[in-house]
């Protein structure tokens, strides 16, 4: 769920920014998206992309831990329920 929420927020914000760029710069949706993620000048983008990757890894690790916790709880419940 964490990873899904992470990707969902990125998707929604991308759409919002693309719509604003379409309105201000008279772009088509594809032009706006390309302009957003592949600009002509992007000197230090690697810093923020690294940050986003770090956030993505945190989400995957968090999801994995939540899954393990859920599984453990289920096992405990099954064990307690067995005669």
């Amino acid at each position: 769920m964490l990873t899904f929420s992470f990707l969902l927020v990125i998707f929604l914000l991308t759409i919002l920014l693309a719509v604003f760029d379409m309105m201000i710069l008279d772009f088509s949706i594809w032009e706006a998206l390309i302009n957003l993620y592949f600009p002509e000048v992007a000197t230090g983008r690697s810093f923020v992309y690294t940050g986003v990757f770090f956030g993505f890894v945190i989400c995957i690790v968090g999801d994995f831990r939540l899954y393990k916790k859920k599984k453990l709880k289920k096992n405990h419940a099954e064990r307690d329920g067995s005669p």
Binding site: L2, F6, G51, G55, I58, C59
Partner: peptide, 9 residues
Amino acid sequence: VPLAMIVSL
């Protein structure tokens, strides 16, 4: 932290 990284981007 993940959302903070999204804001950073």
